[in-house]
């Protein structure tokens, strides 16, 4: 078991956002987190990395390799972020810094996390760009995000997330902002990386179609609580909870 979330509760001021999430991610498996907007999917992802908005209070336990991430001081949490747990965001046109080169964004966290020199970091960055199938990596390394298409940008964002060999990858709606035609490519890439590198992937999405394509396990979230969890087939084919059923019925 790579990452376990138990009894995670998050409140912002007087509003309860998450009221006791239970989740377990496993090495080499994609765990889909489904639910409507406002159900707390994204907040769950943020809570894992300590990225909750200002004024949010979290309790419960988020355990990675025997350590509780919630109790970690900022400095140690920074060593986990990007290093053990990485994140891919929804819209690559806003999640990559528009004024920094692709190379810089790929290597800037390698150097503190992995202790690599400039040349080694560049070498590794070019490998990563090849791995996520960016054509002409040396050229791409010097370029800026706005010079790539949306699908390419998301591939770059995936490469950035993988830069320090994380054990856990949190992908927050990684295909929602993309054209339908490139969505499948990104999903295939994530699935492939998960199998190849033995990543534990938390795939956050409202799209059950995406879910059924690549998830091994599925959890359904509603109002800050996991209402159903299990293997993809059982959850999507024979849902037990009425909410899961209504979600499935809404599928086109």
């Amino acid at each position: 078991m790579t990452l376990t979330i138990t009894g995670l509760r998050v409140a912002i001021r007087d509003t309860q956002i998450l009221s006791g999430i239970e989740l377990a991610l496993h090495k080499g498996q994609v765990h889909g987190l489904a639910g409507e907007s406002g159900s707390g999917k994204t907040m769950t992802g943020f809570a894992v990395l300590g990225l909750l908005p200002h004024g949010a209070r979290a309790s419960g336990r988020i355990e990675l390799a025997g350590r509780d991430l919630l109790g970690l001081p900022d400095k140690e949490l920074n060593r986990v972020r990007g290093n053990d747990i990485a994140m891919v965001f929804q819209d690559p046109s806003t999640s990559l810094h528009p004024m920094l080169t692709v190379g810089r964004q790929l290597t800037e966290h390698m150097r503190p996390h992995l202790g690599l020199g400039k040349a080694e970091a560049r070498e590794r960055a070019l490998e990563l760009l090849t791995k996520v199938r960016i054509p002409n990596p040396a050229e791409a390394y010097r370029r800026y995000p706005h010079q790539f298409s949306g699908g390419m940008r998301q591939r770059i964002a995936v490469a950035v997330a993988l830069a320090c060999d994380p054990q856990v990858l949190i992908a927050d709606e990684p295909t929602t902002a993309l054209d339908v035609t490139v969505q499948a490519g990104i999903l295939r890439l994530l699935r492939g990386l998960c199998d190849e590198l033995g990543l534990a992937v938390l795939l956050i999405t409202h799209d059950l179609g995406v879910m059924s394509a690549i998830a091994d396990e599925v959890s359904v979230l509603r109002d800050g609580l996991v209402v159903e969890s299990g293997a993809r087939k059982s959850v999507l084919r024979t849902p037990t909870h009425p909410y899961t059923r209504s979600l499935l019925e809404d599928l086109p």
Partner: peptide
């Protein structure tokens, strides 16, 4: 902005986030 959150998710130090 998203990219600031993304920078924090990469574990960059507060100083790098602030200035870069």
């Amino acid at each position: 902005q998203d990219y600031v959150r993304a920078g924090r998710a990469k574990g960059l130090s507060g100083r790098v986030i602030l200035f870069r």
